[in-house]
Simulated scan of single mutants.
Amino acid sequence: MRIAVIGSGGVGGIFGAKLAHGGADVTFLARGAHLTAIREQGIQIEGGPEPIRVSPVKATDDPSLIGTVDLVLFAVKLWDTEKVLNQIRPVVAPKTTIISFQNGVLKDTYLRAHYDPGQIMGGVGYVATTIDRPGVIRQTGPMQRLIFGEFDGQRSARGEAFLSACLSGGINAEFSSDILREIWEKFVFLVGLSGTTTTMGVPIGPIRENPQTRSFLLDVMKEVVAVGRANGVALAEDYAERRLELADNVAADMTSSMHHDLQRGNALEVRWLSGGVVELGERVGVPTPLNRAIADILALRQAGSK
Rank of each mutant, 00 (worst) to 15 (best):
A128G: 08
C166P: 03
E182H: 06
R181A: 15
R158K: 14
L180I: 12
I131A: 09
R112V: 06
V202Q: 14
G118F: 06
F216I: 12
G149A: 08
E223G: 12
L180R: 12
L218M: 10
E160F: 01
N231P: 03
E209R: 00
A157Y: 04
G118S: 11
F162R: 01
Y126L: 14
G141V: 00
D253H: 01
E185F: 02
C166I: 02
M200A: 14
L217Q: 05
E185V: 10
W184M: 12
R242I: 11
A113T: 04
G192M: 06
L190K: 00
D238F: 02
S176C: 08
A165F: 05
K222M: 12
A165P: 01
E241N: 05
V225H: 07
R229A: 14
S176P: 02
S164G: 11
V127I: 15
A236P: 00
T198N: 05
I147T: 12
S215D: 15
T197Q: 07
G141E: 05
T197R: 03
L244W: 01
S156I: 02
R133Y: 07
S168A: 15
V227H: 07
F151D: 06
P142V: 04
D132H: 10
V191Y: 04
L193S: 05
D116K: 02
L218E: 05
F162V: 03
A226R: 09
S168D: 14
H114F: 15
I207K: 00
K222T: 12
R112K: 15
N172I: 11
N172E: 15
A230G: 13
A161C: 02
E237C: 00
H114K: 14
R208E: 13
F189I: 08
I137P: 03
E174Q: 14
P142H: 04
I204L: 13
S176Q: 09
A113N: 12
Q212E: 15
S177C: 13
V227Q: 10
S168N: 14
D253A: 13
E185K: 11
G135S: 09
G169S: 09
G232S: 07
S164R: 04
P203S: 13
N249D: 14
